[in-house]
Amino acid sequence: MIRPLVETPANPAPPGTRVHSLGLRDGKELRYAITPASAQPQQGTVIILHGRNECIEKYFETMRDIAARGFTAATFDWRGQGASSRLLRNAAKGHVRSFDDYAADFEQLFESVLLPDCRAPFYILAHSTGALAALLAAPALSNRIRRMVLIAPLLDINGSRMRKTTVRLAASTLRYTGLGPAYMLGGPHRIRSFNLNEVTTDATRYARNCEILEQATDLAIGGPTASWIFAAAKAVKQISKPEFIEKIRIPLLIIAAGADTVVSTRAIEWYTLQLRNATLLTIDGARHEILQEKDFYRKQFFAAFDAFIPGTGSETL
């Protein structure tokens, strides 16, 4: 049964949004939603890829922003989070076996639903974990996605080299000793007070997002498991190989948050330099979740978005 969209007074669903479920090849279910364009001319479809521990409801505002620009907005809950199939008996754990599963799920949704049902051309707007999954899928999408905007992509966690090395070694050890489903970097989900949050400086949007999870606790997940951390590190290593980077032909706009304490901005800068078709913009003062930030930062983001998408239309598709 499809989990209905959760609306609150502060967070109504965009007009015309419909929610469905897609059966995946391995028997899991993916919940997805599509919002029709609310302005003319219609310019194609923007596919929104979430970060870790996010859900469709958190992107209602962004979906309205996209629709108002003449695009269809399509998005979905990754496997293991939101209202898509969970992967462990303890459904609260943030778990995945491999980021290849994320890429495969997206490709199946694209082929089965978006390509036949949504207007071309197609664009990707991806945040953090979603941006890493988008990069992993990019070589296979070269002739189908016109442009991609990646916000604060997960290319490394923030922190000292010793801390990052310790986390990776611990995740690898736990996974290979059969403890991959064990929590790492956190435990069961709990809502932090605004003063302790690391993702936004906007108290109103933060409260709005917390209200969603207070009303629908089943949409939230806790900290990542050792398997999730291991899978993320493996995906980063894969997309960083020169032969993989050479296969990324889709034009990219990469946007970093100047005050990000979640992912490494230095890693984002390094990665952008390896690409031949990427531009980097850093929004000074913004925290990790730029789309959940104050209007001052969101306006900077959308100014860059509008300058990049839809683009000239001269890309090879």
Rank of each mutant, 00 (worst) to 15 (best):
residue 48 I to Q: 14
residue 186 G to T: 04
residue 97 R to E: 03
residue 164 K to P: 06
residue 110 F to T: 04
residue 260 D to A: 12
residue 298 R to D: 05
residue 157 I to C: 06
residue 75 T to A: 08
residue 311 G to S: 15
residue 310 P to N: 15
residue 22 L to D: 01
residue 286 A to Y: 02
residue 280 L to K: 11
residue 295 D to E: 14
residue 266 R to H: 15
residue 93 K to R: 12
residue 269 E to G: 11
residue 80 G to L: 01
residue 182 A to F: 07
residue 31 R to M: 10
residue 235 A to D: 10
residue 146 R to V: 13
residue 129 T to R: 14
residue 34 I to Q: 09
residue 88 L to S: 06
residue 134 A to P: 01
residue 258 G to L: 04
residue 169 L to Y: 12
residue 193 S to F: 04
residue 109 L to R: 04
residue 57 E to C: 04
residue 290 I to M: 07
residue 310 P to Y: 12
residue 251 P to N: 09
residue 303 A to M: 15
residue 215 Q to C: 13
residue 91 A to V: 05
residue 100 D to I: 12
residue 227 S to P: 03
residue 146 R to F: 07
residue 200 T to Y: 02
residue 138 A to S: 11
residue 218 D to M: 02
residue 14 P to L: 04
residue 194 F to I: 13
residue 96 V to Q: 06
residue 2 I to R: 09
residue 128 S to R: 14
residue 113 V to K: 02
residue 272 T to V: 12
residue 24 L to R: 10
residue 235 A to N: 10
residue 32 Y to T: 15
residue 178 G to P: 03
residue 172 S to L: 13
residue 252 L to I: 02
residue 96 V to F: 07
residue 153 P to D: 08
residue 195 N to M: 04
residue 82 G to V: 03
residue 48 I to M: 13
residue 277 N to V: 13
residue 68 A to S: 08
residue 278 A to R: 00
residue 248 I to W: 00
residue 92 A to R: 01
residue 310 P to S: 15
residue 308 F to K: 15
residue 112 S to G: 06
residue 194 F to V: 11
residue 46 V to T: 03
residue 22 L to H: 05
residue 19 V to D: 06
residue 164 K to R: 14
residue 315 E to M: 09
residue 281 L to S: 15
residue 249 R to V: 01
residue 148 M to W: 01
residue 306 D to Q: 14
residue 300 Q to K: 14
residue 273 L to C: 10
residue 136 L to P: 01
residue 210 C to A: 12
residue 193 S to M: 09
residue 249 R to T: 04
residue 135 L to P: 00
residue 302 F to M: 15
residue 313 G to S: 08
residue 313 G to T: 07
residue 141 L to Q: 07
residue 259 A to P: 01
residue 249 R to P: 00
residue 188 P to D: 12
residue 8 T to Y: 04
residue 212 I to L: 12
residue 312 T to W: 05
residue 34 I to N: 05
residue 306 D to H: 13
residue 98 S to M: 10
residue 251 P to Y: 01
residue 123 Y to D: 11
